[in-house]
C-alpha cells in the first residue's frame, strides 16, 4: 500500500511545437521526457519504505544502476492496454512505423517483448509497483557499501510480493517467481536502451538535459 501511494502522477511529453517534425524532434522529446521522469523517479525512490535509511552513496549507486529499468518498466505498464504501441507518455504513443523513423525499432521490439510477457501474466498494479521497487534494490551495482542493508530492503520488498501473491493468487503458487523471472529481460532491454541513447549522446545531434546525461554517463 505504501508503494501504491508513492506511485507518481501521469507524465506528459509535450513535444516542442517550434521544432521541425522528424527524428531529431522525436529523440529530443524522449530525452527531455526521460530527464523529467528521472527527477520523479528519484522522488519516488525516497518513498520506498527503507530506501532513505540507506547511505546516500548506496541510494545513488542503486539509482545509477537501475534508472533505465525503472523507466522502461513504467513504459511497459502504461502500454499494457494498447496493441503494439508504446506509451512513453500519456500524450506520446509510438507505433512500429514511428519507432522505425526515429531509429528506435530495435528498442521498440525489445520493450514490446516485455509488454507481451506482462500481458500474458495479466500483471496488476500492485505487482508492478512492487516489481519496480525490487528492480531498484536488485540492480547489482558493484559500488554498494552496505550490502547487508540493501539485501534487507530487497528482502522486505520480496516479502511484500510473496504476501500479495499468497493472498490474491493462491491459484498460482509460482506467480511471484514468474514475475521475478521477467527481470532478466528487463535488464537486457535497459542495457540496450542505455547503449542506444549513449551513442545518440556521442553523435551530439540531440540536446540532452544534465540529469539525463549524468545518469547515462554513470551507466557506461
Amino acid at each position: 500500500s505504501h508503494l501504491l501511494v508513492a506511485e507518481p502522477e501521469k507524465i506528459y511529453a509535450m513535444p516542442d511545437p517550434s521544432l521541425p517534425e522528424g527524428d531529431i524532434k522525436a529523440l529530443t522529446t524522449l530525452c527531455d521526457l526521460a530527464d523529467r521522469e528521472l527527477v520523479v523517479i528519484i522522488g519516488w525512490a525516497k518513498h520506498i519504505p527503507g530506501f532513505s535509511s540507506l547511505s546516500l552513496g548506496d541510494q545513488m549507486s542503486l539509482l545509477q544502476s537501475a534508472w533505465m529499468e525503472i523507466l522502461i518498466l513504467s513504459v511497459v505498464f502504461r502500454s499494457l492496454p494498447y496493441e503494439d504501441e508504446l506509451v512513453y507518455a500519456e500524450d506520446y504513443v509510438m507505433d512500429e512505423g514511428h519507432s522505425r523513423l526515429t531509429g528506435l525499432l530495435d528498442l521498440y521490439g525489445s520493450i514490446l517483448h516485455l509488454v507481451r510477457r506482462y500481458k500474458k501474466l495479466k500483471v496488476e498494479k500492485e505487482e508492478f509497483v512492487t516489481l519496480k521497487a525490487i528492480a531498484l534494490t536488485n540492480s547489482d551495482s558493484m559500488h554498494i557499501e552496505d550490502v547487508e542493508a540493501v539485501q534487507k530492503l530487497q528482502d522486505s520488498l520480496h516479502e511484500a510480493l510473496q504476501e500479495y501473491e499468497g493472498g490474491e493468487h493462491q491459484e498460482d503458487p509460482q506467480r511471484a517467481g514468474k514475475l521475478l523471472m521477467t527481470l532478466p529481460l528487463l535488464r537486457q532491454t535497459a542495457a540496450k536502451a542505455v547503449q542506444h541513447f549513449y551513442s545518440i549522446k556521442v553523435q551530439g545531434k540531440v540536446p540532452m538535459h544534465k540529469l539525463f546525461l549524468e545518469m547515462l554517463e554513470a551507466k557506461v
Binding site: V39, I42, G43, K46, L56, G57, Q59, M60, L63, Q64, K210, L211, E214, M215, E217, A218
Partner: peptide, 15 residues
C-alpha cells in the same frame, strides 16, 4: 561522486 552532483542534490532535498 562529484560527477553526479544533480542526483546527489535531488536525493538530499527533503521533498
Amino acid at each position: 561522486k562529484e560527477k553526479h552532483k544533480i542526483l546527489h542534490r535531488l536525493l538530499q532535498n527533503s521533498t
